[in-house]
Design a binder for these strands. Structure first.
Lengths: 235, 235
DNA sequence: GTCTATAGGGGGATAGAC
DNA sequence: GTCTATCCCCCTATAGAC
């Protein structure tokens, strides 16, 4: 199968006059996404970015800070948009419980609309985040921390919209929800039937029109109290 | 933060008299999961497995075959169980459309019950599959191929249970469904509220009791025909 | 400055000895 | 089954021709 050729499929900033800091971010993102984070040495980053080994420390302070920056650059705008949408929901109606779909949309839509960026960046986004699972807990925490703020507003809001769910139930459903969101971005490479989805209907708004009701339905459904499941099997 | 120490957290087969083939599989899986597949050379695998460079070719035939084997070892049993469950569904009732929950369970449950294996293997499973997105299309295909058989039975079955959904709709929902399934396995490391889920309620059956209704609800809900939601924003 | 040629290294696959 | 040695291919870098 030969060796991997992914590293330089179509570099963007390589030769431009972009400043070193931006180049370092671009290169680091790409290497992180394809090789893993801890597998990527500062040396490989700086040499690929045509920069000095010391430049990372100068521009970011540490490798950890660089890692954080790489993710902040992608997650930051998404979470800011989420906060804005959550603001809109909470300010709009004084006491009335906000619509479930609005809340879900606030979390999910900013990610989908990220598709605005070109396909290459889209792929990179998925790759980058896929790598997180292969990293140490410290690095994972470093990245998950960036969702704390949004989560601390989203969870209570969702709880208030679904007062009948106990907390455990709610949190599990949120995991499913996040999964469904990610699932919408999975390539499904080579599974023939799914090739049909590559064309039309894959623009952000179309996906959202399908994804949000799916999630809302899943969130809304009540879970059978608990013991045997063979019971409802015949129904 | 130091470099990655994950490689040998608690190796299992290292020193035992386990045969070379098994050792190669274990080592390859671990290296694939932590470094990526194409980033892992046969040389690094064989040396870590205390085996000869030629051993991979002797035991598996090629690197591709080794890759396939690594995944087959994990996916194989899952898909076999899925096929058995699909058999049971289709044989049981002659003409009547099978219950949606049964179909979903047939796909989802075998993955959840994989948790039977120890936590380390569970983590490895997620890591391993996370790496797939960072690989070339050839490798992705190599792995996705292993789902063809199940998919070709599952999709029509689901379609028959949801006759009102057009094919595109159905396929999107399947992506969401797969996502939700994966989502249930995500660590959410460091997001404080989710730490509560680590203890009770995280056994396979409990997760399934929540996950299956979530998915069934999402599959069942009808999607708004399409024009209303600001659809014609830019199109 | 651009292009072709060639050297070097890494990696996968294979033959033949043990 | 395992090993050593080797072949071949691909990629990168560099040098010399134009």
């Amino acid at each position: 199968m030969g060796t991997d050729m992914q590293i330089h499929e179509g570099a963007e900033t390589e030769r431009t006059g972009a400043d070193t800091k931006a180049r370092l971010l671009d290169v680091a993102e790409e290497l992180f996404a394809t090789q893993g984070i801890s597998n990527t040495s500062l040396r490989s980053i700086t040499s690929a970015a045509d920069a000095n080994l010391a430049s990372v420390n100068y521009h970011f302070g540490s490798k950890d800070a660089l890692i954080r920056e790489v993710f902040v650059r992608r997650i930051g705008p998404i979470n800011e948009e989420r906060m804005r949408m959550l603001d809109a929901i909470e300010s709009g109606r004084g006491d009335r419980a906000p619509g479930l779909a609005d809340i879900v949309e606030a979390i999910v839509a900013p990610v989908m609309r990220l598709k605005r960026v070109d396909a290459r960046q889209q792929r990179m986004f998925l790759r980058l985040f896929s790598q997180v699972h292969s990293e140490s807990e410290e690095i994972q925490r470093l990245i998950f921390t960036q969702f704390h703020e949004v989560a601390s507003r989203f969870i209570p809001l969702l709880q208030s919209a679904l007062p009948n769910l106990d907390r455990t139930e709610l949190l599990w459903k949120i995991k499913f929800m996040i999964g469904a969101m990610v699932g919408s971005m999975l390539p499904m490479t080579g599974l023939t039937p799914f090739r049909a989805l590559d064309g039309e209907g894959s623009d952000p708004e179309s996906v959202l029109r399908r994804l949000i009701p799916f999630i809302v339905a899943g969130l809304s459904v009540s879970v059978p109290p608990g013991e045997d499941r063979a019971a409802e099997r015949g129904a």
